[in-house]
């Protein structure tokens, strides 16, 4: 699993990256009450809004950590958005992206680097 400074994670299998937010991000958001996931087929550039997560208080964007095409979206979050809080790095994933440039993953933090980054906040 690799991480961004905006607290997204990606898990790579072949050229497909599964994207979610970290435990830290889920705790910061508080109770998630609504999730908007991208349409399958949508092309995203790294840094584009991939999903929107809504807590009681506010809406927050989740940014694409890598560029590519959405090949699967986690539609179950429309029924059970609280999964983002319960299992942020598991069942709370947002989308799977077929990467156009898999080398972008190399630019993301590994677990040790992300832990150090969290400790610095």
């Amino acid at each position: 699993m690799r991480f961004t400074k905006d607290h997204e994670w990606v898990s790579v299998a072949g050229d497909v990256a599964t994207v979610g937010i970290t435990q830290y991000a889920a705790e910061q958001l508080g109770d998630v009450v609504f999730v908007e996931v991208p349409d399958v087929g949508k092309t995203l550039n790294k840094g584009d809004s991939l999903a929107v997560v809504e807590s009681v208080k506010a809406a927050s964007d989740v940014y694409a950590p890598v560029s590519g095409e959405v090949v699967e979206a986690n539609g179950s979050l429309s029924v059970t958005p609280e999964t983002v809080n319960a299992e942020p790095t598991g069942g709370g994933w947002f989308a799977k992206v077929k990467m156009s440039d898999p080398s972008q993953v190399d630019g993301l933090m590994d677990q040790a680097a992300y832990d150090a980054y969290l400790a610095s906040l």
Partner: peptide
């Protein structure tokens, strides 16, 4: 304080 244990639970 914006929340203690969580907005939904507090509500």
């Amino acid at each position: 304080p914006v929340q203690y244990e969580g907005v939904l639970a507090e509500h």
